[in-house]
């Protein structure tokens, strides 16, 4: 049976009728048309579906759409503001960190969360740890880590949007 839920995705509220068994990934991709988040395994093994739920990297394929009511969901579509790329997006582009690009949205969301944690610029090992739930088959990760390192070294982290007092 479908129930009406209200989802806060990328700062916008969507009212949709969903069955409880609909995953957040299916809701995003097939109900809301937000196809940036990808599906590579549908069971937690690859990280392609990573989105932020209340600022934490979360696998949309193992999250029920009904369960994110009252939580803030952010997807790759939220990163570029008014057609200006997020610094991480720009760095991925400049470093050639996206080859086929299929893992990229998920990896970006894990990286965004890492940089939003603030503190000292993360070193390569911390970056690898933060991205260790995301598989990429194309790049060997080298350029991905380069790109994140580059942004980490060159930006002061602003913290997640909507958070005050930095």
């Amino acid at each position: 049976m479908k129930t009406l839920v209200s989802l806060d995705v990328n700062g916008r509220t969507y009212e949709i009728a969903v069955s409880p068994e609909l995953t957040l990934l299916e809701a995003l991709r097939y109900e809301l048309g937000l196809t940036g988040s990808k599906q590579g395994c549908d069971k937690g093994d690859c990280g392609a579906c990573t989105v932020l739920v209340d600022d934490r990297p979360t696998l949309a394929c193992l999250t029920l759409a009904v369960a994110v009511q009252g939580r803030k969901v952010r997807t790759v579509e939220s990163l570029a503001q008014a057609n200006v790329l997020h610094p991480l997006q720009d760095a991925f582009d400049q470093h050639g960190a996206a080859q086929c690009g299929f893992c990229t949205p998920g990896i970006l969301m894990s990286a965004v969360s890492l940089l939003e944690q603030g503190g000292d610029a993360p070193d390569r090992l911390s970056i690898k740890k933060a991205l260790s739930g995301n598989l990429c088959r194309c790049t060997g990760y080298t350029k991905i880590i380069d790109a994140v390192e580059d942004v980490a070294a060159n930006t002061s982290s602003p913290g997640p949007p909507g958070h005050t007092g930095s």
């Binding site: 196809t35 990808k38 790329l85 720009d90 582009d93 400049q94 996206a98």
Partner: peptide, 18 residues
Amino acid sequence: PKIDGPTKVTGEALYTDD
């Protein structure tokens, strides 16, 4: 940088299942 880099990092690039 690749010409399709920007659409890949924004998630706009459409793959078959999209």
